[in-house]
Design a protein around this nucleic acid. Structure first.
Length: 663
DNA sequence: ATAGGGTTAG
């Protein structure tokens, strides 16, 4: 439901007058603009960019915020960290508002939901923190991180006291953007003595997962220990499973296993009944070469009469452990069992991830037909593959030169409305180059622009190096030259493939050009290896001197560039100065003409006007001057207001006379 | 009634 315009314009100014730096600013560690959005697909990115333009976060301007008396008071005492309101406030009008916003969220109109939340903040019906959480959660689900942060900041500055759920939503947003350390910083506020809310197990899970995924293993361990220290939260198998996963990914099976043992001990030494830890425990054993222990564990926790609880995700972790460690038969058996158990909505034992893991397991042993088959069976369990599922299979097929199959899957994505992302295209490009379908590879690269994806330097490098390998160097150079236009900065690999190619075909002048590009780019290092390669090539042609010349040229160009920059700067400064002088002169001229006009006006008032003398000069007065007269006499009038109305009136009359005479 | 419960590629 759209808000009425008057309400909008009445409320908006308040949001712009919020205190510049309220205490709660601490709770917003990153602004929406300095947080990169999730590296998902580019269309989502484009949508997000658009939205950023539409809804900017409340900007705070002016050091002394004005508040209307009796109006909203964003934070009467910003130093007091408030307790969140209890759930019981969700009643009456505020419940009605909550329902309205909930409806908007259900209709997927998040823009309107967020807007209504903002506007209500300063109405006589404030949204509860629960309402704010609902909207934040919806934004999180849609990966609209900038909007989430903006709304979060808005409601926080407006003193809506956050619950732990609010904090968790913010933490999740940071973590989704791969900013676990920002999340940690925010989290530390919850540990302070004056924090009115405490972290929940979920808080620890969000952080543990992100830290582990991003390889911040020391921090993950620290977090886990902190969880135990405080004693408020029981040792959580999920937190342990995440941390174990981090070590598994780092190839450290020992630590993964010992983490499991630690958890077991903390929980009293018996069997851990949550299946979430066993996938990573098995992987830990496999890493240590203890296959027997891994499989013993498998039989124990998934064997007849086991009390260990498994759900889709925990099953998938075990499934993955089997599939990656040469136990495809066991994986297939487990997968069948999961499918049989699957009985929605009561029991969910299979999900999209299960299929992805099985596809991966089949591909690992090069059973591609089985992989494609199981991929196709997702629908039977109401699962829909996403871009990741497709990319994974396309990757395997392409790597094994099954390009036709890979391209078939790409077409299928289009038909099913599952948008390929940059990575999909990169995989197809690689696949095509691998089997020398060079033109198709180039076609896929160009297609990215058509569908509005933004290839990064890595994508460019794929097509450049691919073309170079089949000696189509000039085309490769063409794509290289396209990079600036597409606002993509070449990296060392971009230069390197072309440089090597030119050296190989003895196009040394072109090679020197590339080398010059590297040397002129301050952010790129010309490796010794490449240097030596170029030098050797030049030497062979008896062009030893050219290397020295290259460096000299680069120095000259750098110096020239610096000089140009300095000159540019000087010119800009001179221009600015000139501008200032001009302004000053103008101001002075204005002042003078105003003084002249004012004299004329006063003369007129005093009736000292003599036709011959004044008439001429008045006629020379420009329109501009006449305007100056007008404003000046306004000022005079204002200054004279105290002295009496009569005089002011006369002065005004005199002015109109002057203006009349000038035109 | 708001959070949250996990897995999967490179």
């Amino acid at each position: 439901m759209a808000l009425s315009k008057p309400l909008f314009s009445r409320l908006l100014p308040f949001s712009l007058r919020l205190p510049a730096r309220p205490q709660h600013r601490l709770l917003c560690l990153a602004t929406p603009t300095d947080l990169p959005d999730a590296p998902t697909d580019a269309s989502a990115e484009r949508r997000r960019r658009k939205r950023r333009l539409r809804v900017e976060p409340p900007s705070s301007r002016g050091p002394t915020p004005q508040r209307t008396p009796g109006g909203p008071r964003p934070s009467s005492n910003p130093n007091a960290l408030k307790l969140p309101e209890p759930a019981s406030v969700l009643s009456g009008k505020r419940l009605d508002l909550h329902r309205r916003i909930l409806t908007l969220v259900r209709e997927n109109d998040l823009d309107e939901a967020a807007l209504l939340t903002r506007h209500s903040i300063y109405s006589n019906c404030r949204p509860t923190v629960f309402t704010c959480n609902t909207v934040l959660a919806a934004l999180l689900r849609q990966a609209r991180y900038a909007d989430l942060l903006s709304l979060h900041r808005f409601v926080t500055q407006a003193s809506v006291a956050p619950t732990v759920a609010t904090h968790n939503l913010l933490l999740q947003a940071y973590c989704d953007c791969r900013r676990p350390e920002t999340a940690l910083e925010h989290f530390r506020l919850l540990l302070k003595d004056d924090s009115p809310v405490l972290p929940s197990p979920t808080t620890y899970r969000i952080l543990a997962r992100s830290l582990a995924e991003n390889g911040k293993l020391d921090l993950a361990l620290e977090l886990k220990d902190g969880m135990l220290e405080r004693g408020l939260i029981a040792p959580d198998p999920q937190v342990y499973a995440f941390v174990m996963g981090g070590f598994v990914n780092a190839g450290d099976g020992d630590t993964a296993v010992s983490l499991y043992e630690e958890l077991k001990e903390k929980l009293g030494g018996g069997l851990i009944l949550d299946g979430v830890v066993y996938g990573n425990l098995m992987k830990g054993y496999f890493l240590k070469g203890m296959d027997k222990e891994a499989m013993d564990c498998y039989t124990e926790v998934l064997g007849e009469g086991s009390k260990v609880r498994f759900e889709a995700v925990s099953y998938n972790m075990v499934l993955d452990a089997l599939g990656r460690n040469g136990r495809l038969d066991d994986a297939v058996e487990l997968f069948d069992r999961m499918c049989k158990e699957h009985d929605p909505p009561r029991r969910i034992a299979v999900n999209l991830g299960s299929f992805n893991v099985m596809v991966d397991a089949y591909c690992r042993v090069e059973r591609f037909q089985d992989a494609i088959e199981v991929f196709g069976k997702m629908g039977e369990k109401s699962c829909t593959p996403d871009a990741l599922s497709y990319n994974s299979l396309i990757d395997w097929l392409g790597k094994n030169e099954l390009v036709g199959e890979a391209e078939g899957l790409y077409k299928e994505m289009g038909e099913r409305g599952i948008n390929p992302d940059e990575y999909s295209y990169v995989l197809l490009i690689e696949s095509c180059f691998r089997v020398d379908n060079v033109d198709d590879a180039v076609g896929y690269f160009n297609k990215m622009f058509d569908v509005g994806l933004r290839p990064n330097a890595n994508s460019f490098n794929k097509v450049i190096s691919g073309l170079v390998k089949v000696d189509r160097i000039d085309e490769a150079q063409g794509f290289f030259d396209l990079m600036p236009e597409k606002e993509v900065k070449p990296n060392i690999a971009s230069y390197e493939s072309l440089l090597r190619a030119y050296i190989n075909v003895a196009r040394l002048d072109d090679a020197i050009k590339m080398a010059k590009g590297i040397l002129l780019d301050e952010s790129i290092v010309f490796t010794d290896e490449l240097k030596a390669l170029l030098y050797g090539a030049l030497q062979k042609e008896g062009r030893n001197g050219d290397m020295t010349k290259l460096y000299e040229d680069v120095e000259t160009e750098k110096a020239e560039a610096a000089a140009r920059a300095a000159e540019e700067k000087a010119r800009a400064e001179a221009l600015a100065k000139e501008e200032e002088e001009k302004k000053k002169a103008e101001a002075k001229a204005k002042e003078e003409s105003a003084a002249r006009a004012s004299r004329a006006a006063i003369d007129a008032v005093l009736g000292r006007k003599s036709g011959a003398e004044n008439g001429e000069s008045s006629q020379e007065m420009s329109v501009e001057e006449a305007q100056v007269v007008e404003s000046h006499s306004d000022a005079v009038g204002a200054a004279e207001q105290n002295e009496g109305d009569d005089q002011k009136k006369e002065s005004g009359d005199a002015t109109s006379q002057v203006i009349a005479s000038s035109s």
